[in-house]
Structure formats: C-alpha cells, structure tokens
C-alpha cells in the first residue's frame, strides 16, 4: 500500500514558467509577510509555508475546478496555488478592503468558492468527509482534498474520519505535509509508529513522496488521485521541510538542524539547474508581491 519515489530534485525535466512563477510567488509572499511582521505592520499571528510551497503547486495540476480543498493554519500556499490571489489574501491578513473574508477570518480562516481553511487541528477531516458524501451524490468524480500536518495525527477526529472514509468509500484525499516538526515538537516525540501504518490500519492506500520535483510528484500521484475520484480514499505523505519558524520568531531548532533543513530546500536545485530563468522569474515574483504590498497597505480597513 505504500509507495515512494526517489529524492530526485529535477529528475524529470524543468518546470514550466507558470509552475516556477507560482512557487516563487508563494515564497516571495511568505518572506514579505515575515518582513511586515518584523515592521509591526501585521496583527495577531501567521504561519508561513516556506519550504513547503511545492506541495500545493504539484497537486494543483491533479485537482479539478469542482474539487473541494480544505486547508489549515499553514495555508497561504494552498490558497495561492488554488486561487492565485495574493491581493485578497494579504488584505485578509491585514484587515484591508478587498479581504477574502472581510478580515474576520484572518490568516487561518479563509473560505471562497470550494476552498476553506480552519484553525483547529484535525477538525476539517470529518467536515471533508461530509462534503465528499455530497460530492459523491451530486458531482461524481469530484473529490475533497484535505491538507494536514504530521502533528495533526495526534487528533482523534483524524481516525474517526479515516474510518468513515474507508467504510463509506468517500472521495477523500488526505495530504500530509510531514515537515518533521509540530510547532516546537519533533515528530518522533509525538508520533508512535508511522503515518503509513496508521493509513494501513484502515485499509487506506498511502503514498510517500520524497523530493520536490513537480513532474515526478505528479507522475507518482496521478493514479492514486484518480482512484480517489472513484471512491478509494488516499493518504499522501510528503516528506517536507519547514524552513521558517512555526509562526514568527519562535524557532528553537539548533543551527545544525536548520542548516540541514535549508539544504533540502526545493529552490536550490532549480536555481542551480537554470540560474538565469530562476533569477528572472524570482525578480518578477518579488516585484509583483511588492506591488501587492504597496497596494494593500494603502487601502482602508475592511
């Protein structure tokens, strides 16, 4: 039930300009967000997805417009990959005109069309099962995709939902971003056994994705995602890396660990393979985000 691909970085050819731009735009957005926090321009808290940007970008090619996506506290990349709307997201985070949810939800409570994020761990899995139940009836072939982290597997609701998804053959795709750390707690101090073992306990298929090559990921996952559409739920576990802090300024990992995590960043192999293209698209992504920041900061409150 468990499958793994090798850790090839750019093994299957260069990503398209569109994919690369999206990756770099999400990164620029998150980096700029931490800057704005540092300048005292943001309220509350936020959780950036630095290092994990490739997960939703890879999956976006496998999702259809009629699919539902459920995200979590670390959801900016999920939203930007799905809706390409940095203006609306930043306005939401800053409480300015044009905010996706009027500034009520903020960073971790976003809803638009078929996208929804919530701030409580594991809460969205049962909800996604309910949505999947309706999709199976009124929109056969559509699926509900839920992003969770490794830490989410401490919540009982996850298992209640997996049980139902398997029993009822729901089109449920669970995407686990296993970045090895939950806030400050390493996964090995919070999880007995494995995610693969837990999926297997329910007779649910499990795919383990190592590496960040978009084409290789899509090739690995395409058959399983197609099977989800027919009612075979799937758990996809991305072995990934959180480059930034949990929220802001709260990273207590030792320097050696941080160096190891940064060495695994998806950006480096792309930049090494095509330095000029990456530099050009990165400059464009940063310029776009700068323009978004200038625009949104000048807007009135939502």
């Amino acid at each position: 039930m468990t499958a793994t691909v090798t850790e090839a970085a750019v093994a299957e050819g260069a990503p398209s300009d569109e994919d690369l731009s999206l990756l770099l735009t999400i990164r620029a957005f998150e980096e700029r967000l931490l800057d704005l926090f540092g300048q005292g321009m943001l309220n509350g808290t936020t959780h950036t997805c630095l290092g994990q940007e490739y997960v939703p970008v890879a999956l976006e090619a496998l999702l259809r417009p009629e699919d539902h996506v459920f995200s979590n506290h670390r959801g900016h990349g999920h939203y930007l990959a799905r809706h390409r709307d940095p203006e609306g997201l930043l306005a939401e985070i800053m409480g300015r005109r044009g905010a996706v949810c009027g500034g009520v939800g903020g960073s971790q409570h976003i809803r638009t069309e078929r996208y929804l994020s919530t701030g409580v761990q594991g809460e969205s899995l049962p909800v996604a099962c309910g949505v999947a139940l309706r999709l199976r009836r009124v929109s056969p072939g559509a699926l509900a995709c839920v992003y969770v982290g490794d830490g989410t597997w401490g919540e009982g609701g996850v298992y209640e939902a997996l049980n139902l998804a398997a029993l009822w053959r729901l089109p449920l795709l669970v995407v686990v971003e296993n970045n090895g750390i939950a806030q400050s707690t390493p996964t090995q101090r919070a999880m007995a056994g494995t995610i693969a073992g837990r999926a297997a306990a329910f007779g649910i298929a499990h795919e383990r994705v190592v590496g960040s090559d978009l084409a290789a990921i899509r090739r690995q996952l395409a058959p399983g995602v197609e099977a989800v559409r027919g009612g075979a739920p799937l758990v996809v576990e991305f072995v990934t890396h959180r480059l930034g802090p949990h929220s802001k300024g709260d990273d207590t990992r030792p320097a050696g660990e941080l160096a190891r995590v940064r060495a695994a960043d998806w950006r480096a192999p792309y930049a090494a393979a095509e330095p000029e293209r990456v530099a050009r698209l990165e400059a464009a992504a940063r310029a776009r985000i700068e323009a978004v920041v200038a625009d949104v900061v000048a807007r009135e409150p939502s």
């Binding site: 049962p126 139940l133 939902a161």
Partner: peptide, 17 residues
C-alpha cells in the same frame, strides 16, 4: 460508528456544501 466528533463534522460538511 461511535464517533460523535466525526458524525457532527460530516453533518457540518453536508450543510456547508
């Protein structure tokens, strides 16, 4: 199943959709 959290969540998902 005996899963009050999930039952209520599934119902909320149906309502949401």
């Amino acid at each position: 199943p005996i899963s009050e959290n999930a039952i209520t969540g599934v119902a909320a998902g149906l309502a949401l959709a």
